[in-house]
Amino acid sequence: MFEARLTQGALLKRLLDSVKELVTDANFDCSETGISLQAMDNSHVALVSLSLRAEGFNPYRCDRGFSLGVNLNSLNKIMKCAGNEDVITLKADDSSADSLCLLFENSSNERVSEYELKLMDIDQEHLSIPETDYDATVMMPSAEFQRICRDLMVVSESVTIDVSKDEIKFTAEGELGTGNVKLKPTSTIDKPEESITIELGQTVSLQFSLKYLSNFTRGTPLSDQVMLCLSDNMPLLVEYKMDIGYIRYYLAPKVGD
């Protein structure tokens, strides 16, 4: 038996919104420690990795590990039927899970709706992501990162990210001209959500597709801060941390011959 009850149902809506543009079908892997998902987009340029800890649910019950193969568009349609303040419970029979039951309860518990989502067999390869000591780790306000991606898309489909000790610089070059945004580290003790920090092993300069980065910023409502981790000749890691877990996006760089 699998059961996971989330008091903040809106969080599940936001999570789904941050994944569904990148991936259409995905396995939710359920175990006694929590729920996780790993999937690449069709072109294998980006990978999304989601992890939700069992402690974030109340209650959480999973007797044995199993996978829920879900069409995210279908799940999204059903999730639209949940109110933003609803408590959401996911239930499935772990021995023969051919459907996922979703229960939406409003705060006063007067209205309860129940939906069944048909599950599918998804044959997805699972990649092992190596532990990486990144050359540069940058924390910044997630809304700022979203704005930079949106702004620079006006100029080009690619962005070069340069990180030094003193600044992170985003540069775009296109047919109409060029644009760049530079951010310096700031520490605002009373407003930590607005601070920018740079941890640097060595300077790094990498080019990425703005279309994908912009897609990743759908995670913005999940966290005030976003973490960017860069290393030469490695995929960029973009992480949004939540109380209950995290969503990580990996983006393969644009590289020269």
Binding site: V45, E125, Q207, A252, P253, K254, V255, G256
Partner: peptide
């Protein structure tokens, strides 16, 4: 812009 690489070039299958 430079050619796009893929995730498979960096992360291996389990």
């Amino acid at each position: 812009s430079l050619p796009q690489s893929t995730i498979d070039e960096f992360f291996s299958t389990n």
